Amino acid sequence: MRAVEDGHAVAEHGYTVEQAVRDWLTYGMTGRAEGTIETRRILAEQHVIPALGARKLRDLSAEDVDRWLASKARELSTRTLQDIRSILLRSVKRAQARDKVQRNVVLLCSTPTGRTGRPSKALTFAQARALLERDDATTYGAYVVLGLLTGARTEELRALV
């Protein structure tokens, strides 16, 4: 009632989290690289929409978001948790700007620490030095040296071999 008295539009009752996320994916990603858009779409469809999509956006609480993120922390890395929280945050922010919801409860929630990632497969300094000091000439010698000295990834250098 106070929102109406203040002249604010009243959010529609049936607007769901899924609608907000799909709206953000459609209109809120302009100017982003195609790969970024695809990654965000996949994350939204695999993690955000199945878990929270059916909830009415105006009924979504900070406690719901905290519980959802905590459950996802058991299976996802911290970085992926940050990404899915960001998707939800930006979706609700866009909906808020369009008077679909009064406040963004995602702002009240922090990202938990997720599962640890896989161990690094990068060479240590000692391993790289030993590889460079080897005296045997192989087909991949130049490939390895170029990779070590430039920091280029193997996928980028593979075309040179």
Rank of each mutant, 00 (worst) to 15 (best):
A3Q: 07
H8L: 08
H8Y: 12
V10Y: 04
H13Q: 15
H13T: 14
G14L: 08
Y15M: 03
Y15I: 00
V17I: 05
V17G: 12
E18T: 00
E18G: 05
Q19I: 01
V21N: 14
V21R: 07
W24G: 06
T26V: 00
M29R: 14
T30D: 11
G31C: 02
R32P: 01
A33G: 09
A33T: 11
E38V: 04
T39Y: 09
T39H: 10
T39N: 14
R40A: 14
R40W: 15
R40D: 15
R41F: 04
R41V: 01
R41C: 05
I42E: 15
I42W: 14
I42P: 01
L43A: 13
A44H: 03
Q46M: 13
H47S: 02
V48H: 06
A51E: 04
L52W: 01
L52I: 00
G53D: 09
G53I: 02
A54F: 06
R55A: 11
R55H: 05
R55D: 02
K56S: 01
K56L: 06
L57S: 02
D59A: 13
L60F: 07
L60T: 00
S61V: 03
A62G: 15
E63A: 08
V65S: 06
V65W: 06
R67L: 14
W68N: 01
W68F: 06
W68V: 01
A70P: 02
S71F: 09
A73S: 11
A73W: 03
R74W: 10
R74C: 05
S77D: 07
T78Y: 03
T80K: 01
Q82G: 12
D83G: 04
S86M: 07
L89D: 13
R90Y: 14
S91T: 01
S91E: 05
V92E: 03
V92F: 01
V92Y: 03
R94G: 13
A95W: 07
R98F: 15
R98E: 10
K100Q: 12
K100Y: 11
Q102R: 14
Q102K: 12
Q102N: 13
N104P: 03
V106W: 04
L107R: 13
L107S: 10
L108V: 09
T111E: 02
P112E: 04
P112N: 10
P112L: 04
T113K: 13
R115M: 15
R115C: 13
R115L: 13
R115Q: 04
R115E: 14
T116I: 08
G117F: 06
R118W: 07
R118K: 11
R118S: 15
P119S: 12
P119E: 15
S120E: 07
S120G: 08
K121M: 05
T124H: 07
T124I: 02
F125W: 00
F125G: 02
Q127H: 08
A128S: 12
R129V: 11
R129Y: 04
L132R: 12
E133D: 11
E133C: 10
E133N: 13
R134W: 09
R134S: 10
D135C: 12
D135R: 13
D136H: 13
A137T: 10
T139I: 00
V144Y: 11
L146Q: 07
L146Y: 05
L146G: 08
G147H: 02
G147P: 01
L148R: 03
T150C: 06
G151Q: 02
T154L: 08
T154R: 05
E155A: 08
L157H: 09
L157D: 08
A159H: 15
A159V: 08
A159D: 11
